[in-house]
Simulated assay, not measured.
Amino acid sequence: MTKRLVDEISEANDEQCTARVKTALENTHNITASETSIRQMRHQLGWKYGPVKAYPIIRDANKVKRVEQAKAWIESGDTFQDVIFSDETTVVLERFSTFAFHKKGRLSLKPPPKHPLKMHVWGAISRRGQGCIIIFEGKIMHKVTCRSLMHCTTVVYVVP
Rank of each mutant, 00 (worst) to 15 (best):
Q69W: 13
V155I: 15
Q69T: 11
S34I: 04
K110Y: 00
V155S: 15
T90W: 15
H142W: 03
S10H: 03
T32Y: 01
K103T: 14
Q130M: 05
N62C: 03
Q81M: 07
L93I: 03
I74H: 14
I31V: 15
S10Q: 13
R147E: 13
N62P: 00
I125M: 13
A100E: 01
V83I: 14
G123T: 14
L5D: 12
A24W: 00
K118C: 12
S34D: 10
T79E: 07
E35Q: 15
K3H: 13
D14M: 02
A54E: 09
H120R: 08
K139G: 08
F96N: 02
R59A: 14
K114H: 02
K143N: 08
T89L: 00
D82K: 09
M141A: 15
I58D: 03
T23G: 04
R59I: 09
V52Y: 08
S108N: 11
S76V: 12
P160G: 11
H115C: 07
E88R: 08
T28Q: 10
D82P: 00
K48A: 06
Y55S: 10
D82M: 01
V21G: 01
F136C: 12
E11N: 13
G50E: 08
G105M: 09
R128T: 06
T79I: 04
T98P: 00
Q81C: 06
R106L: 00
T18N: 04
F96T: 05
T23S: 11
G138R: 06
T32H: 05
P111T: 14
E68W: 00
Q44E: 13
I9S: 08
Q130E: 07
R39S: 10
V156R: 14
I31W: 04
V21F: 02
Q16M: 09
R4M: 11
Q44Y: 10
S148T: 13
L5E: 14
T18I: 11
S148F: 02
T2Y: 02
A61L: 03
S37L: 06
P111K: 14
G123L: 06
F85C: 06
S126E: 10
T98Q: 08
V92W: 09
R42P: 00
M41D: 09
S148M: 09
A70I: 12
T23V: 05
P113E: 14
R39Y: 09
K3C: 10
T98D: 04
P112G: 10
L25A: 05
K110W: 00
L25H: 03
